[in-house]
């Protein structure tokens, strides 16, 4: 064997191709003449470029990723955020609240972010041993009254779907507000039973991301009538028949939903009034 077949499932250490004609791309490495897979995933051959689309694995942050995080600790300086990575980035209070407001007598850090709060935030630095979070753009803010579901970050494109088809399906049929973090943390807010339904749908996507017929399974789970499922399937067929999971994952790379967030600047509101908000 000289060459792996496109879309074949490969394991770490597996030789994908021999010879200097090929170029190793993501989740692969070169060892002498060989191009070798470094993670379990689907092999992808595009001309001379060989890469592996991982099927699971730890979240590797990249600059620009919009992620969902959770406040896990705080001190007088700021907050420690869990984003599903072994580094828990620190958000300093100075980045979030202007100095003069901090001096106010009724200033209380826990009113801005308390332990257990869920936030949405963008990664602005992703070095191997240092991750920094941005506080200046519109994605930044606390997410109230929802639930958090965690899946491997590599499955995020499947939750979004082709051109955002899956995520709009989930939103439209549940009426829930959903934010999908690049880190695989998903925040869902709506009626409790709808939240539960979306949680189940997301877990099903995680379990069966590599299998065919996923959209129909999700439609059934959401309680969409069979005739409508059929109709939707037919209308979709013309658009994109028989595309592989790998192609799909490529296409939706960074198609995260752009939406208004609930509280853009919690600091402004929170510090000015003697809030009785929790």
């Amino acid at each position: 064997m000289d060459m792996i077949k496109d879309k074949e499932i490969v394991v770490p250490g597996q030789v994908l191709a021999k010879g200097m004609d090929f170029i190793p791309s993501s989740a692969t490495f070169r060892d002498g003449e060989d191009i070798v897979a470094s993670r379990i995933g689907l092999a992808q051959v595009k001309g001379r470029v060989i890469q592996v689309i991982p099927l699971t694995g730890p979240y590797m942050p990249e600059v620009g990723d919009v992620v969902i995080g959770r406040i896990v600790d705080m001190n007088y300086n700021g907050w420690e955020i869990d984003i599903g990575h072994h580094i828990k980035p620190f958000l300093t209070v100075n980045d979030v609240v202007p100095k003069f407001k901090q001096r106010s007598s009724n200033f209380d850090m826990a009113r801005i972010f308390n332990i257990g709060d869920i936030i949405r935030v963008t990664i602005i630095k992703a070095a191997k041993n240092d991750i920094k979070l941005g506080t200046r753009d519109r994605t930044f803010g606390r997410l109230n009254n929802g639930i958090l579901v965690k899946i491997p970050s590599v499955k995020v494109p499947r939750v979004i779907g082709k051109k955002g088809s899956m995520i709009s399906l989930l939103k439209d049929f549940s009426g829930c507000r959903i934010f999908v973090g690049k880190n695989g943390w998903i925040w869902i807010s709506g009626d409790s039973d709808k939240e539960l339904m979306i949680e189940k749908a997301v877990k099903l996507i995680d379990k069966e991301a590599h299998k065919s017929g996923l959209t129909e399974k999700i439609q059934r789970l959401l309680g969409i009538p069979e005739e409508d499922i059929k109709r939707m399937k037919e209308s979709l067929l013309e658009e994109n028949s028989e595309e592989s999971v790998a192609d799909e994952i490529q296409k939706v790379e960074s198609a995260l939903p752009e939406e208004e967030i609930q509280e853009k600047k919690p600091k402004a509101k929170k510090t000015t009034k003697k809030g009785d908000k929790k």
Binding site: I147, L148, S192, D193
Partner: peptide, 11 residues
Amino acid sequence: MKTNVKKQILE
């Protein structure tokens, strides 16, 4: 998060 899960369970 704790309180949100609790809210869901109670509802």
